[in-house]
Design a protein around this nucleic acid. Structure first.
Lengths: 260, 260
DNA sequence: ACAAAAGTGTTACTTTTACACCCATGT
DNA sequence: ACATGGGTGTAAAAGTAACACTTTTGT
C-alpha cells in the first residue's frame, strides 16, 4: 500500500481555533462564542473554523479572526514560535500556539485543530459572525476556574470541547512571552504611556509592579519604546509621555515576573 | 451545508514529523532519513509518518520515534509547550514543536504535519526502519547551511519538503529552551558530570563557557542536579562527581547565553 | 614531573529591589 | 490645598564575569 493514496487514510478535518486575548478593566479577557448547535449547544467556546483548501494555517486563522471580530492580523507568520514585526502597530498580533488532535476531542469526527494566539488592544465590542449565537469577552480567570471547580464557588460551565485546555495553554504562553519580548505592547493602542503598559503586565500576571522601577526598565531598554511626541492625562495625575512600540521584539534582560 | 459533513471538506492528511536532536562529538546533530521514493527521491528528510485513527498526536510521534530509532519517549504530553517530568531520566524528551500546513508543501496532496521535537542522549547508531532507505546523524550546521548556500562552500542538497525550516525551528527551540529549563540534561545519559553537561551547552549554543562559573551555577541551583554518589574519570583529569537530573524543570535565574 | 580536567576563592562589575523624594496636572 | 499618577535619585542586595589558584587523576 502506498502511504500517499488519500483513500487509504482516515478522514481528518483540520480547523483553526483562536485564543483571542485582551486586557479590559484590569483583567485578562478572552473572546468566547456561544454555540448555537450541538454538541455543547449553548456552551461557550473559542472561535474557530475549518481550513480551506487554498489557504495556509496562518491565513485561515487571520480570516477567522476577521470574520469573528473585524480585527486585522499583523502579518502573521506561517508557523513556529513566530513574531510578527514590531508589536503594537496597527493590527493584532497573531502566532501559532499548538495543535490538538486527540481522537475523541470532537464526538462527530476526527478533528485536528491548530490553535492560534491573538493579542489585541481593548477594542470595540465583539461582533458575532456567521452561525455564532453571540460573542463576549470573559475574564480568563473565570473561564478557567470553571474548569477546576473551586470549592464554595458558584460553578460555571467550562468551555466546550477541549477549549479550556487550549485557553490555558494560550494564557500561559502570553504570560511567559511578555517576560522576554515586547509582546505586551500588542495589548496597547498605537500610542500608550508607560503606566498603561505597566497595567497590562499587572493584569496579565495578576501582580503589582513597582511603577518607578518599571519605568526605568522599559525606558532604559534600547529599541523597546520610542517617544511619540505628545503627552496625555487620560489616567489622571501628572501628564505622561506617549510612546510607540519600538523595533526591538526581544527584551534583554527580561522583565522579571515576581514570585506569586 | 453543515460544516461537519466530512465529504463537504477537502481531504487533509495529517502526519507527524520528528526533529530528533542529540549531541555527538561536540556538535548538535539531527536524525535524517534518506528518501527511497519520489518526490525528493534520494534526498535527506526528517523522519515521520501518518497519524493513525486511534492515536493522538503525541502517541503517533512516540510510535514513529520507536520505529525509526528504537528510542522510548518519556511520557509525552498531548500538546502545548510541554515538559515531560524530570528530564534526563530513562527515555528521550518529546514535545510538540509546531504545525506546518502550507497548501503546496507536499506536491501530492494536502498534508498538515505536526512537528515534534525529541532530545536524546548520544545513543547507538540509528536504525533505519520500514520503508526508509537509510538513516544517519548529521550536524545541524551542515544541514542548515545547505539551505542557505554559503558562498565558497561545497553546496549540499537541502532537506526535502519544508524540513529545513522545521529543523531550524526545532534547533531554535532547543537553543532557547535550555536557557531557562533543565532540558539540557535530556542530552545526557542518566548519570553525568558537570563538565559533560557544560559540553552539551557549548555544543548546542556553539560557544565556550567558563567551566568554573558554570559549575557554580548548576550546582548552586536547588533541585537542578542531585549527586548520584560516584565519580568518573571518563573525561580525563581529576575525577568528577556524577549527578542525576533533579526534580526542578525550570532554571531561575536562567543560564545566560553569551552574545555571539 | 607534567598535562588535563575538576573544583574553590576572590574581586570588580552589573542588575535588581526598595523606597525617599520631587513634578505636573485636575478638582 | 490636596489627591493622583508620572518620573528621578540612591543605597543595599543579589547575581554575573573574569581569573588566580588548588585538587586529583592518567601517562
Amino acid at each position: 500500500m502506498s502511504p500517499y493514496d488519500p483513500s487509504a487514510h482516515p478522514p481528518f478535518a483540520v480547523t483553526v481555533d483562536l485564543v483571542v486575548l485582551t486586557v479590559r478593566q484590569h483583567a485578562l479577557c478572552a473572546l468566547t462564542i456561544r454555540r448555537g448547535e450541538p454538541p455543547y449547544q449553548g456552551r461557550w467556546a473559542l472561535p474557530g473554523g475549518f481550513v480551506r483548501p487554498d489557504e495556509n494555517l496562518a491565513e485561515a486563522a487571520a480570516r477567522e479572526l476577521a470574520e469573528e471580530t473585524g480585527l486585522r492580523a499583523q502579518q502573521p507568520v506561517p508557523a513556529g514560535p513566530g513574531a510578527s514585526g514590531p508589536y503594537g502597530g496597527g493590527g493584532a498580533h497573531l502566532e501559532q500556539l499548538a495543535t490538538y488532535g486527540d481522537p475523541d476531542r470532537d464526538p462527530r469526527m476526527r478533528v485536528v485543530s491548530v490553535a492560534h494566539l491573538v493579542l489585541a488592544p481593548d477594542l470595540p465590542a465583539p461582533r458575532a459572525g456567521g452561525d455564532a449565537r453571540s460573542a463576549r469577552w470573559a475574564p480568563v480567570d473565570d473561564l478557567l476556574q470553571a474548569e477546576n471547580g473551586a470549592p464554595g464557588e458558584e460553578q460555571r460551565a467550562p468551555l466546550a470541547f477541549d477549549h479550556s485546555r487550549i485557553l490555558a495553554d494560550g494564557v500561559e504562553r502570553a504570560r511567559s512571552k511578555i517576560e522576554y519580548s515586547s509582546l505586551a505592547t500588542a495589548f496597547c493602542p498605537p500610542e500608550f504611556t508607560v503606566g498603561e503598559l505597566r497595567r497590562v503586565y499587572e493584569a496579565v500576571w495578576g501582580v503589582a509592579l513597582d511603577p518607578r522601577n518599571f519605568h526605568r526598565k522599559v525606558t532604559g531598554t534600547p529599541g523597546f519604546l520610542v517617544p511619540a511626541g505628545g503627552t496625555t492625562t487620560r489616567q489622571g495625575g501628572r501628564p505622561a509621555q506617549l510612546f510607540r512600540a519600538g523595533g526591538a521584539t526581544l527584551l534583554n534582560p527580561p522583565m522579571l515576573r515576581p514570585e506569586v
